[in-house]
Every structure is written in C-alpha cells, then in structure tokens.
Design a binder for these strands. Structure first.
Lengths: 105, 105
DNA sequence: CAGAGTTATATCATAAAGTGATATATTTAA
DNA sequence: TTAAATATATCACTTTATGATATAACTCTG
C-alpha cells in the first residue's frame, strides 16, 4: 500500500492515538475524551481496525504487553503514513475553508 | 442528523467543492485536480453521495440547471455542517500532530 | 459531416468499512 | 461480595464506497 493512500477517519483517529503506546480500551476512551464525545469508537470498530493496522504493519504489539492489556504503537511506516495523511487532510481543510470564505463575500 | 455528526471523507470533499455551484462531473475533476490525483471520486461514488446530500438537504439543485448539467450548491444547513466538520477535522489533525511531534523527542 | 474524444449523468452488483449487540473475564472500589 | 469499571473479542448486520458498464449529447478535427 502506498503511503499516499488515504486513511479512513477511524483509522486516522486510532493511529493518531498510537504515537504513544496504548491499549485498545485506552484508545477508545482517549478519542472520546479528546473530541468531547463527538467521535466515539466502539469495541467492534476498535478491534477490527487494530487487526487491519497490524496486518499493514502500521502498528505493532508493544513489548511487555500482557494479554489483559495489549499495548500497541506506531511503526516507522505507520508514522510516515500518518504524516502523509495529515498533509492531505490539511489540504482538504484548506480547500473547504477557502471555498466557505469566498462564499461569504 | 445533528450538525456535529461527522461527514465521511468523500462527503466532505464533495461538499467542499459545492461552496460554488458545480455539476457532478466538475466536482470529480476538481477534487482530482486539487489533490493532484491523490483523491479521486468516480461516478458511482459521486452520484450516490449527491443523492444522499440532496436527501439531507445539505445541497440543492441550483436554479436553471439543465438535465445535461445538473448544478448543485450547498444549502445554509449544508454550510453549517461543513463548517462544523472543518472544526472537528482541525482538532483531529492537531491531536495527530501533537502526538507525532512528541514522539520525535 | 463522420467519427473520435470528451463531457455528463446514471445504475448495478459487489466489495469494503463500520457498528450495535453481546459475551466473557478481570480488576477495583464501595 | 458485589456492582461498576476495565479490557478484549466476535457475530451479524448495516452503511458506505466503487469498478464496471451503459447511455447520450456535445466538440473538435480531418
């Protein structure tokens, strides 16, 4: 998969939480807390996406994880993918804002 | 649907293009051009999403549209939804960037 | 003016993504 | 000791996205 490939919003949010080692439940809580409850990721979405990210090798199981608290972290590849996606998303937002601003005039 | 509800990326991109009156084909070309081909919206996605946005009354069929070139534009409601989504997306990006920056140290 | 290329809308069938509900087990705190 | 919170996991279903294809009207060029 190319690094220019766009992430889904859920993938983006989960990956954004994994710049530090965190386990699934912590990610769910964090995203919800950070967005003041606007974005919620349920367990079904969480563990489905975790699986996918592991398969892509964008995250990995952090050392010393017990089965009770499986901790994940971005790989280098994962960081690059996330960075590329941040850039793309910034562009998207910028275009939307320019359009909205022009429409105001 | 609440205005705080998150838009999918495709919906966001299409709505961002409709701050000015544009027809489907023009939106497809515009998004592709603006993102240098990174994001492409094919006709299937385009017209599926157009239908959904019309139903939500976030866009409307602009006056004087011939069937050959159906032109759409954001409604006031649509603008608000887009604006709210821009805000949310900015937050998402900011969180990702903060995380990435901290991980660098 | 024939026909090739582009513009433009539309849908079908399928694939991909997301999620509510539910299950299970452990840990913590009252 | 038991209720609540923590934590992982999966099933079945819905929603969303899209490749392929169809159709037709314009536009340009030889």
């Amino acid at each position: 998969m190319k690094t220019t490939e766009q992430l889904t919003d859920s993938m983006f949010n989960i990956m954004a939480a994994l710049t530090k080692p965190r386990h699934g439940y912590a990610i769910m809580s964090l995203v919800e807390e950070r967005t003041h409850g606007v974005i919620t990721i349920g367990p079904a979405s969480m563990y489905t996406i975790i699986k996918k990210l592991l398969k892509q090798e964008w995250i990995y199981l952090y050392d010393g994880s017990e089965p009770r608290r499986k901790t994940y972290l971005l790989t280098e590849k994962g960081k690059e993918v996330l960075e590329a996606d941040v850039k793309l998303r910034k562009l998207m937002i910028q275009l939307a804002e320019t359009g909205l601003r022009e429409a105001e005039e």
